[in-house]
Design a protein around this nucleic acid. Sequence first.
DNA 1: GACGATTATTAGCCTTGTCTAATATTTGGC
DNA 2: GCCAAATATTAGACAAGGCTAATAATCGTC
Lengths: 152, 152
Amino acid sequence: MVHDDLQPSPPAASDERPSDPRAGAFQGVREAHRNELAEDYVELIAELIHARGEARPVDIAAKMGVTPPSVAKTLDRLARDGLITRARYRSVFLTDAGRALAEECQRRHDIVLRFLLRLGLDAETAEHDAEGIEHHVSERTLALFAAFADRS
Amino acid sequence: MVHDDLQPSPPAASDERPSDPRAGAFQGVREAHRNELAEDYVELIAELIHARGEARPVDIAAKMGVTPPSVAKTLDRLARDGLITRARYRSVFLTDAGRALAEECQRRHDIVLRFLLRLGLDAETAEHDAEGIEHHVSERTLALFAAFADRS
DNA sequence: GACGATTATTAGCCTTGTCTAATATTTGGC
DNA sequence: GCCAAATATTAGACAAGGCTAATAATCGTC
Ligand SMILES: [Mn+2]
Ligand SMILES: [Mn+2]
Ligand SMILES: [Mn+2]
Ligand SMILES: [Mn+2]
């Protein structure tokens, strides 16, 4: 027996837990939530820079509905992750990676929003729901949303 | 000057931050995320009880894709919040409140899922996206989803 | 250019939600 | 009924993300 493996192990599957099919969906949601705050921040920062020429913590705090210290801590994480650059007491800038992410998020946000409006939702509810839904829409779903939003 | 108020304060608004209109959307998303895990758990517990007669931590862990200790800690919070009852080393039961929440979540999950399928999405992606989207769908949006899913 | 108001940061606290390692309990097979 | 395997719990670590209070820096105005 040259290489009698003896493991009746399930068909490989590197290092996951038993992984009920359902588990994959929940893991995907947790993954989305890990990226969510960064996505909303870079998107907002891009908008502030576009609208006012700069993104200041005080404005980020007002738009996000959190306190300035919460913004400071989050910005530190974004800088650590290479999405922004910042100097003490100065406004915030996007790195190339941050700008790329922001554009991707803006595109996705826009599609989801237009989709909800097209479905017949009022503007305020559409914006409210889009802010959460956008992070849980696969590329495949996004394509269907876009097609529906743009249908004649 | 009997009662010269001197506060040019904004039109009341109890105790919120300056609250850009946008901030409300983000606050709503944060609120949804605070309820999310409880919702997924009670929904899953209800399903396990229906399918197998009981909800055991080991099965919850497999379906959620997390470790048993994570389940244990979450179940403690659910018990603290009055959604389940449990005895050590025994399976888990829903309270009336937990059962009510589970039914509400099942209804919502089902509508979102049927909507995505109706839109043309494959089953696996639909289930994946629905697991996240369901927590960010207002009652108003849900009604539109249901109408679309059930349209002739 | 000094000074008060605004803005930013720091320090420190708290909860949630994940994990691993160790321990306790239950259960099924003999 | 015993014992090993399966299951559950506990202990403890850690990161994220929110907060308040205190401090530091900047800015606008005179
Ligand atoms: Mn968002
Ligand atoms: Mn879910
Ligand atoms: Mn669900
Ligand atoms: Mn979410």
